[in-house]
């Protein structure tokens, strides 16, 4: 382990599940500051569930999650809300509030948590929209946007408070390869511009190889992490055959063929 200062997110002995059913256990990993970190795994392995635990929506059965050194598990409701303000989350479908315009969506956290004037908020909203290539779409309702635009708008909202930690839930799901690649570039540029730590849950290999510094792989059968390292390294040298197959296109195709 490197020094604690550099570690943005740390997961310790985490066990998660619903009721009596354990979804994942023995989870131990950390994300360094400024790193792009991918959580991978087959469908239904619990990667989205893990994300929801990390961002504090669900309570783990045991173990601890530290964000910038603060435990989100043991925090009081008020403390948890404070921690939550320091990271942004981009959901699969964007999760924009349907009753508000795009600009209002982005302005919401600003209005809630800052004392900025209407003017200042408007400036920040326009800046964020420009950042995600949606300049001029501020007055659109979410229902008037395409899927990719919704995701980008969601990203803009997640960025509103300038978080140093960003979570992406399946950013390329449901997008065509070109849009998906555009989103990948956006993620990389965010890291370049703001040195943001980014955690991505995905199973898109192209994305993983394009952006990830490091990946962990979750296995449905063993209910834990089966691999941890850079994607290229793992594809070439993983001791686990399933990991190597997963990371190579052949493997994916074969897996699909089996089902």
């Amino acid at each position: 382990m490197t020094n604690a200062k550099n570690i943005k997110l740390e997961i310790k002995d985490l066990v998660i599940g619903y009721g009596d059913r354990i979804v994942l256990q023995d989870l131990n990993f950390h994300v360094r500051s400024g790193e792009i970190f991918c959580i991978m795994g087959g469908s239904g392995c619990g990667k989205s569930t893990l994300l929801k635990h990390i961002i504090g929506l669900f309570r783990p059965q045991s173990g601890d999650i530290l964000i910038s050194g603060q435990s989100i598990v043991n925090a009081t409701a008020e403390e948890r809300r404070l921690i939550m303000r320091h990271f942004g989350v981009t959901y699969q479908g964007g999760a924009l509030f349907g009753s508000m315009t795009v600009a209002e969506n982005i302005a919401l956290p600003l209005r809630e948590y800052t004392d900025k004037s209407r003017q200042e908020i408007e400036e920040i909203v326009n800046e964020k929209l420009e950042l995600v290539d949606l300049a001029g779409f501020g007055n659109f309702m979410p229902s008037e946007l395409s899927g990719g635009m919704c995701k980008r708008a969601g990203l803009a909202r997640a960025l509103a408070l300038n978080p140093d930690l960003l979570f992406f839930d399946e950013p390329s799901a449901g997008l065509d390869p070109i849009t998906s690649a555009g989103l990948d570039r956006l993620i990389l540029s965010l890291r370049e511009q703001f040195n943001t730590t980014i955690v991505v849950v995905t199973h898109e290999l192209d994305s993983v190889f394009a952006i990830a510094d490091r990946v962990i792989m979750l296995d449905k059968a063993s209910k834990t992490i089966v691999a941890d390292g850079s994607p290229a390294d793992l594809r070439a040298h993983s001791e686990n055959a399933w990991v190597r197959e997963f990371l190579s296109r052949d493997g994916l195709k074969r897996n699909a063929g089996e089902q």
């Binding site: 504090g56 809300r81 989350v89 959901y91 699969q92 999760a95 349907g98 948590y113 969601g154 839930d169």
Partner: peptide
Amino acid sequence: VNEEISALETMGID
């Protein structure tokens, strides 16, 4: 369904 509830929560809004 749209995870808007989750989004609210992770924005720190009840």
